[in-house]
Amino acid sequence: MTKTPLIRPCTLVWLILLALTGLTWFIGESGITGMAIVGFVLATTLFKSQMVVDYFMGLKHVRAAWRGLLFGYLLLVCGMIGVAYYISLT
């Protein structure tokens, strides 16, 4: 079986996810805020989650509808969180 095609991108994804987690943590520590920051963190979160869906769960390789369903879910959740923060900031 070909194992590198599965493992190599996943190792990279794992490292990217760790780096982005560090970035999110740093933003939290620095205490900076504002809609742009919140939007950035939420976009990072959306990206990170979709990476897990695509590579870890492996949905990149299945029928697009399933991936789309999960993307829709993540977009809805992150988007609505953004809306809630937007309401509170204005």
Partner: peptide, 25 residues
């Protein structure tokens, strides 16, 4: 919280390796 994120991500990655291992029999 951040440490736990790292821990869970790593754990997930290990599971990916486990699936890859069994696919390689």
């Amino acid at each position: 919280g951040a440490a736990n994120t790292v821990v869970l991500l790593t754990s997930s990655y290990f599971v990916v390796r486990a699936v890859a291992a069994i696919r390689a029999d």
